[in-house]
Simulated assay, not measured.
Amino acid sequence: MRRTWALAPLLGMILVGAALAAGVARAATIDATVTVPLAAQAGDGGRQAAREQALGRIVQRLTGDAARAPAAIAGRVDDYITASALRSEAGGQALTLTFDVPALRESLRRQGVRVWLRERPAVVIWAGVQDGGRSLAGADDPRATALRDAARDYGVPVLLPLLDLTDRQAVTYQDIAGGFSGRVGEATRRYGTSLALAVALQARSGGWNGAWMLVRDGSTLASGRTSGDDVAAVADAVWARAVAQLRPDYTVASGESSAIRVNVTGVNGLAALAAAERALGDSAGVVAVQLSGIEGDRAVFRVEAEVGEDRLRAALDRSSLWAPASPDGGGAEAGLTYRWNARGSGG
């Protein structure tokens, strides 16, 4: 007889385990406030232009794309502003505006604009600097914070590493400059994400050079070189190119939300069940995971996602935690079927 486990006590144990573990996908917060310069003695026309400029920056944070907002939204910019303040700054005045980000996000989707997924992985920034010496730049270094601030303008959630002894033994400037993505990927796992941006900054006469690579699961997704008058210019150029690689996997268009059945085999015990449930929830675009049933070593989950079945399949296929499997008995069965790879999870 095949045993079906009771779900109520089991779910409680799973939730406790999930709460104690670091997740990969997480809710990404978009900064809703923008400050733009205002021309001296600007009239209504000048203030309207400033509002439209601020709208463009918020749209870029929501989409990762510097393209202008659709006319239907740009023409109603005031509908999305929840607060405004005028303040004096060195050299003139500035207008600070706060936007209703959820409402703007939904309006963009209705207009067919691809927006960032609400739940997606953070990117760890590994910044190496050569400026009279070679070192790694941490959260207290303006060159690392320039990379962090540029990421914010593209709507990318990021983490700066601790750069303690563990990090410094795992990654060096030479690893970043040499393009050793495997070492960067291994060090990144410590921070509960698979994504990293590694940038080697090199001071030159009158500016900076930057060699960068975007890493996922220890493999290079994209790489390149750029230069600028200062680190901020290099950071913006790097993120513009890196974001172009991230958008296909981590943005969503209108009509892609769905509820997907995922059948998982190879679930042997509570620890494996908790790990599989957590890994599903960590997948980009997944909003919620509900356990529907268990029979033997097979679990069935109902996954609420911002993406469709094909994109969830692609996300699972990219991970070493999942192996595509055939439905039991080889018959047609709704949803996706995977085998849980306990070795890939480290459990």
Rank of each mutant, 00 (worst) to 15 (best):
T63A: 01
R76Q: 15
G329V: 05
F301Q: 00
G185R: 01
R114G: 07
R51K: 14
S107C: 03
E119W: 11
G266T: 00
S345I: 03
G23E: 13
V267M: 10
G293L: 02
G331R: 11
R216E: 15
V123W: 00
E277M: 13
G138R: 01
E119R: 15
A332H: 08
L86M: 11
R26K: 14
W239E: 03
D153G: 10
L159G: 01
A151H: 10
D229A: 15
R76L: 07
D78I: 06
V287I: 14
A83P: 08
A85L: 08
A6C: 05
A244S: 13
A315T: 12
V115K: 08
S326D: 13
A315D: 14
L10A: 09
G285S: 05
T145K: 09
E186S: 14
A27G: 11
D164E: 14
R3S: 09
R313E: 10
V124K: 00
L273Q: 03
N341V: 06
S135H: 11
R105P: 01
S84K: 02
P327H: 05
A85K: 13
A323V: 15
D249V: 03
A137N: 00
A39N: 07
S320E: 13
V36C: 02
L280F: 12
S223G: 12
A244C: 06
A72C: 05
A18S: 11
Q169D: 12
G45T: 10
G210E: 01
A85N: 12
T35K: 08
Q41L: 11
R110V: 12
V113N: 06
G281R: 14
G255I: 08
V129N: 09
Q169M: 10
V123N: 04
T33Q: 15
V307P: 10
Y191Q: 04
A122W: 01
I81T: 08
Q41W: 10
Y173Q: 00
A187T: 07
S88P: 04
R61I: 01
S292N: 10
A21S: 13
D79L: 12
A272R: 14
V34H: 02
L312I: 05
G347E: 13
D31H: 06
S254V: 04
A67L: 06
L7K: 01
R47C: 03
T35S: 15
T4M: 10
A232L: 05
Q53Y: 03
V264G: 04
A299G: 04
G45S: 09
T98G: 09
D175V: 06
S227L: 02
R247T: 03
R134K: 14
E333T: 06
L197S: 04
G335V: 03
L108A: 04
P9I: 01
V231H: 06
R57T: 02
E277L: 07
R57I: 04
A222S: 14
V303M: 08
Y154I: 00
V16E: 15
Y250S: 09
A144R: 03
E119T: 12
R318W: 00
R51Q: 13
T226L: 05
A67E: 11
G64C: 07
Q245S: 15
G17D: 12
Q60R: 15
S107W: 07
A325W: 04
R318A: 15
E304H: 11
S84N: 05
A122E: 12
R247A: 12
V113G: 04
A90M: 02
A71H: 12
A103H: 05
A28L: 07
W116H: 03
V303N: 08
G269M: 12
F301R: 02
A253D: 10
M213T: 06
D236Q: 13
S181D: 15
A244L: 09
L246T: 02
